[in-house]
Design a protein around this nucleic acid. Sequence first.
DNA 1: AAACCAAGCAACCGCGCGCAG
DNA 2: TCTGCGCGCGGTTGCTTGGTT
Length: 228
Amino acid sequence: MAGNMGWRMQDQEWRKGPWTPAEDDLLIEYVRMHGEGRWSSVAGCSGLKRSGKSCRLRWVNYLRPGLKKGQLTPQEEGIIIELHALWGNKWSTIARYLPGRTDNEIKNYWRTNFKEKTTSSQNQEKKKLKVAFRRDQYQQEVKETINSCALPYKEDNIGCKMDGETIAASSSGTTNEQQQHNQSLMARDVASWWDIVSEDGSWSEFLWNLDDDNPNQPVIEQSFSSYF
DNA sequence: AAACCAAGCAACCGCGCGCAG
DNA sequence: TCTGCGCGCGGTTGCTTGGTT
């Protein structure tokens, strides 16, 4: 499309493939000087021979401060499972509720763990069992988190509002204690939501009906109302 | 020790949306 | 209103790595 000219008009000159440490340094320096955004001008200003698109991806998925590395926690896995059940493959939306995790990471996680390899009913059953197992594991973790949570819950705690901006803020501007507190609060609400959904056994139907665009958004918005 | 295979992950690609002129 | 541009998103690809034979 014409709109891609800014990204790709010099395709033949763009470097591709794995990033080198030197390229990372250039990109970090560029963002430090100019801030995030204006990706199409990175090449001109920094000397990087990378497309703006490639720069943005590298920054968002790898270089951005506050990113968590390593394996997902059971809490995070539970949140992914539940939000995917609600929203389907809206990876960036799901990522907003997992501070420090990227949409790419979540997408890869899902594909690795739950990717449909065949359509056999046997595999469907296996998949359901796997999700059920992870759900149970997650709920156990939630209980432990709640039991060990020493900080009091405050309705007016503005820092807990978990939209995209405050997540970013909480990643960079709050203490680890606050971040853990926020996560445990969110985990508690997810657990409550689970209780509602799974009470009559409808969760399984809920989980596998992923094709609708976003039919369950009101449910989660109600459950997560203190964060929206 | 070598070959093969599968899983995990980083990066690329195409599409579509929002905005400014 | 239309068009071009910048950008974000989801899907896909291909490389790397670790495990198995």
